[in-house]
Amino acid sequence: MSEFNVQQREHGEISVLDLKGYLDAHTAPKLEDAFQDLLAAARFNIIVNCRDLSYISSAGLGVFMAFIEEVRKNEGDIKLTNMTPKVFNVFDLLGFPLLYDITNEEAEAIRKFTEKRK
C-alpha cells in the first residue's frame, strides 16, 4: 500500500498543507488530524497543495467536506492548488470546483487570501 504524508508550512496568516501520496479511507485520518490541529490553533486560512498527491478516493474527499463548514464559519477558507489532471478530474466529477476554490498555483491562492484581508 502506498504511503501518504501531510507536511505543514506556515505562510504568515496562511497555513499550507502539502499532501503526498495516496489519500484513501486508510490514510484519511492523517489529513483529518492535520485539519483538526489547524482548527484547534485557530488557523482558518488553509491552502492544500496537491502537487504530490497521486490519488484521492471518496473518503479522502470527505475530509474536506468535514471541515469546510467550520472553516468558513470562522471567515477562513480551504483552497486547493497544484492538482494533477487525474486528481482534478476526481474533484471535478463530483462538482468540487463549484464549492471550493481550486487554483493552479499556490501563489495565486496566497494572493487571494491576502486580497481578501485588505
Binding site: 463530483l94 462538482g95 463549484l98 464549492l99
Partner: peptide, 17 residues
Amino acid sequence: PSGMGLGLSRGKAFSDS
C-alpha cells in the same frame, strides 16, 4: 452534464449545478 454529488451542498447551490 454538470452536477455535484448528493449531500455536498443543499438548496440553490446544488440546483444551479
